[in-house]
Design a protein around this nucleic acid. Structure first.
Length: 227
DNA sequence: CCAGACGTTGTT
DNA sequence: GTCTGG
DNA sequence: CCAGACGTTGTT
DNA sequence: GTCTGG
């Protein structure tokens, strides 16, 4: 699940975050965003994470987590992490403690059905506002003297009432009042996992769309048209 | 102790 | 790196 | 998540 | 069928 999402407006970054009037975002770095209708795994996407000073900063990071201890060619690059397992899994535990991030999105896709052709749906806020997915990131160096590569994964949880008919999982969408705590590196894993719950269904809407979205290279507004 | 795995999704 | 299995 | 490749030899 | 790439 959650193997595709959108960032359709360039104002999704700094302006939207400052509008929340959260202290953490007062000095937020301007987030340069190229609108996209089809963000897929293994591509770079903007994420928001604390910089060295603890202030949130934004930059492009590759979707698909490569743990820092990976030797040689990465074998596993999970694009999702189950909220039920992040606290105990050897792969996610450290990232949950120290490397949490926000992944901005203004919509995502989900495929309904057991065998192809599956019916894709587009899901967004009713007010077409901003989502922040809960993410974890890692820094990996292919070799000792190579440039580090940053990657991230999206945390998933059980579906809310809107998503249940479509799928058995959904991405963790954080409430604005939880953004700070999720990024706060002084908050521990125990506090962090409290925030990992299904988002309010009444604030979301979904509709069926064309299977044109299946092709990663398709990246236009027509992907969101109701069918 | 060392060796080997470490994940999710969906599909069967 | 850290946990599990042998 | 879905789509598309899945190989070797030899040459640059 | 299974892996890789987007």
């Amino acid at each position: 699940m959650c193997g595709r999402y959108t960032i359709r407006r360039a104002d999704v970054g700094a302006a939207a975050l400052r509008a929340l009037n959260l202290p953490l975002f007062e000095e937020f770095t301007e987030l340069k965003i190229v609108p996209r209708f089809n963000i897929a795994p293994s591509q770079n996407a903007p994420v928001i994470r604390p910089n060295a000073a603890g202030k949130p900063a934004a930059g492009e990071v590759r979707w698909g987590l490569i743990p820092s201890w990976t030797k040689g060619k990465p074998k596993m690059q999970p694009i999702n992490a189950r909220a039920e397992n992040v606290a105990t899994s050897a792969m996610f535990r450290q990232a949950l403690e120290r490397r949490r991030c926000l992944v901005p999105a203004d919509g995502f896709y989900e495929w309904h059905g057991s065998k192809p052709p599956k019916q894709p749906y587009f899901i967004r806020r009713k007010d077409d506002g901003l989502f922040m997915f809960a993410g974890l990131w890692e820094r990996w160096k292919p070799d000792d003297d190579a440039e580090p590569i940053d990657t991230f994964t999206l945390i998933t949880t059980t579906p809310n009432e809107l998503m249940k008919p479509i799928h058995n999982r959904m991405p963790v969408i954080l409430s604005p009042e939880d953004y700070e705590k999720w990024l706060d590196r002084t908050a521990g894993a125990e506090e962090a996992i409290q925030l990992l719950r299904p988002y309010a269904a009444e604030e979301m809407e979904a509709w069926p769309i064309s299977t044109r979205v299946n092709r990663v290279g398709n990246d236009g507004p027509e992907l969101l048209e109701k069918i």
